[in-house]
């Protein structure tokens, strides 16, 4: 083959591989614009909500606000805070988590590792149904349950925890189930072939491998119920002072506090009145909202750290 031949075939080849497919390029560009557009559209409400809450919430949010309850605060006085609501929210969600995680995790383990046949199908069906329960119905259910034993006037933190766990359990089951199914079957077989009994395989291999993902799922579930208002309004009620006892009396929680402040609305200050801010209730509501968002974000951060700590380390 001569040099001339070579160069002519090479130029043909060049033509083949440099040909631009115009249609594909156009499609690619359109899709790219659409995807970016969708992303920006999705970001608008998020950014707008965060900005609004931060701008409004910052006005009232200070150390005083975080460390005082609303006890003895009335009218338009520039006083009071959300300490009682923070305590209530933390205690009630913590207890709800303590109820939901064991139940949810054990259910997921049953479904993935042991469940066969109609019972497993029934459990899956009921978990699906539970996912769809409106939160206010969960509140009514918990209230009705406790009213049987404590009479119709029952209002306790633990009732709220039960209501929240009704909402949490299906989320925990679903996410844990998914994480457990992601654990490769080879690892189970490897452990079984070493003569490890099944229950130890489940605890020490399956759970250990999936723990990071399960932690993330639980964090998301907690974050989701932390902002629940309706069931807590029914089951726990409202109060102005600090109550740290889940098993006696009403408690305040952040979402309910926000609702209560918003509902009280503008304060009718008489002109020239000392220490009276007409919009004080709204200011408190915004500051409480900001606190709630920060709490949820802190929780996500902790969840992420846990995940990173437990994640399988692949690269040596």
């Amino acid at each position: 083959m001569t040099t001339a031949d070579l160069s002519s075939t090479s130029s043909e080849f060049r033509a083949l591989i440099t040909q631009v497919d115009k249609r594909r390029h156009r499609k690619d560009r359109t899709m790219r614009v659409l995807i970016w557009g969708a992303f920006v559209l999705a970001m608008i409400p998020l950014v707008s909500v965060s900005l609004t809450v931060v701008v409004h919430g910052m006005q009232k949010l200070d150390l005083d606000f975080l460390t005082h309850s609303m006890r003895g605060v009335f009218g338009g006085a520039d006083a009071g805070g959300i300490y009682h609501a923070i305590v209530g929210t933390l205690l009630i969600t913590l207890f709800a988590t303590l109820i939901s995680v064991p139940i949810g995790l054990l259910t997921a383990i049953y479904l993935v590792e042991y469940g066969r046949g109609s019972l497993a199908r029934a459990v899956t069906f009921f978990v699906d149904v539970m996912t769809g329960i409106p939160s206010i119905v969960a509140g009514l259910f918990a209230y009705a349950l406790f009213a049987v034993f404590f009479g119709p006037a029952v209002r306790m933190g633990v009732v709220g925890s039960v209501a929240l766990s009704v909402l949490m359990i299906p989320v925990v089951v679903r996410s844990s189930e998914e994480m457990l199914r992601l654990v490769p079957n080879e690892l189970r077989e490897a452990a079984l072939a070493l003569g490890v009994p099944k229950w130890l395989v489940v605890i020490k291999v399956v759970l250990r491998t999936a723990v990071a993902g399960i932690g993330t799922g639980v964090t998301i579930a907690v974050a989701r119920v932390m902002g629940e208002t309706a069931p807590l309004l029914i089951a726990v009620g409202t109060i102005d002072s600090i109550n740290t006892n889940l098993f006696s009396g009403r408690m305040m929680t952040l979402p309910v506090f926000i609702y209560q402040q918003y509902q009280q609305g503008l304060v009718p200050c008489t002109p020239g009145q000392q220490n009276c801010i007409p919009t004080i209730n709204y200011d408190r509501a915004w500051a409480a909202a900001l606190t709630l968002i920060i709490l949820v974000m802190l929780l996500n951060l902790i969840g992420r750290l846990i995940t990173r700590f437990f994640a399988p380390k692949n690269l040596g």
Partner: peptide, 28 residues
């Protein structure tokens, strides 16, 4: 009493080399 080695290598990803060797002891 009858051990098994599988077609695809399947060390436990959450364990170190040493822990993998000791898996039969530790997991039990």
């Amino acid at each position: 009493q009858v051990g098994m080695v599988f077609q695809r290598p399947n060390p436990f990803p959450t364990m170190s080399i040493e822990e993998n060797v000791l898996a039969g002891v530790r997991l039990n």
